[in-house]
Simulated assay, not measured.
Amino acid sequence: MLRPAEERDVQAMREWRNQAANREVSINQHVITPDEHRAWWERVLVDPSRRVLVFEYDGRALGIVNFFDIDERSAQWGFFLDNETTTAEGTAMLAWMAVMREATNYAFDELGVDVLGGEVLTHNEAVRLMNRRFRFTEGEPETREVDGRTITVIPISLRREDRRGQGARAAGALD
């Protein structure tokens, strides 16, 4: 389930984002300070082109989905899970598949976009494979300088008509 993030979620969001496993696959890999996080949250609260949602799995908050640059046709997105909890409990893969399914459904069904975009680091093969499973396509890799290091980022996109289960939904069947 996805629900709007609230003030009560701010600390957990920062803790999850700062987990080593999440930093390693993020474009910006530094530890987010409380002040930096607070400033980001204050911007989110007044930005109509953003939605930050809490992913709940099995009745518990276990991640964040961040939609940004939302307009009438497209949006960008990213997410991260509470990697430490999901890994320790053996639910990481199930939670990962659920958050991707719920987030893509939210983008197309709630936000009403035609194209959902994002970025993935080239070395993040697990996410790249999962993106393909969900029918995202990869664009041309881009090299950037971030925080004193060179990274290669691959843009991804998913068009409404290409998302998983469209044919089954239209016929009234389950995915």
Score class of each variant (00 low, 15 high):
Glu36Trp: 09
Glu36Phe: 10
His37Val: 14
His37Lys: 12
Arg38Cys: 08
Arg38Trp: 08
Arg38Ser: 13
Arg38Leu: 09
Ala39Leu: 13
Ala39Trp: 04
Trp41Val: 15
Glu42Gly: 12
Leu45Val: 11
Val46Phe: 00
Val46Asn: 03
Pro48Val: 08
Pro48Trp: 01
Pro48Lys: 05
Ser49Gly: 11
Ser49Phe: 03
Ser49Leu: 08
Arg50Leu: 01
Arg51Met: 04
Leu53Met: 14
Glu56Met: 09
Asp58Ile: 05
Asp58His: 13
Asp58Tyr: 06
Arg60Pro: 00
Ala61Ile: 07
Ala61Pro: 06
Leu62Ser: 04
Leu62Met: 13
Gly63Leu: 06
Asn66Tyr: 10
Phe67Ser: 01
Phe67Lys: 01
Phe68Trp: 06
Asp69Tyr: 09
Ile70Ala: 00
Ile70Val: 11
Asp71Cys: 08
Arg73His: 12
Ser74Arg: 14
Ala75Asp: 05
Ala75Trp: 03
Gln76His: 13
Gly78Ala: 12
Phe79Met: 14
Phe79Tyr: 12
Phe80Gln: 07
Phe80Pro: 03
Asp82Asn: 15
Asp82Lys: 08
Asp82Ile: 10
Asn83Lys: 03
Asn83Leu: 03
Asn83Trp: 10
Glu84Gly: 08
Thr86Trp: 01
Thr91Pro: 01
Thr91Ala: 11
Ala92Phe: 10
Ala92Ser: 07
Met93Tyr: 03
Leu94Gly: 15
Ala95Leu: 04
Trp96Val: 02
Trp96Thr: 12
Met97Phe: 02
Met97Cys: 02
Met97Trp: 01
Met97Ala: 08
Ala98Gly: 08
Ala98Gln: 04
Met100Arg: 07
Arg101Asp: 11
Arg101Thr: 14
Arg101Cys: 09
Glu102Phe: 06
Glu102Leu: 12
Glu102Val: 04
Glu102Ile: 05
Thr104Trp: 06
Thr104Asp: 04
Tyr106Leu: 07
Tyr106Asp: 05
Ala107Val: 10
Ala107Thr: 10
Phe108Gly: 10
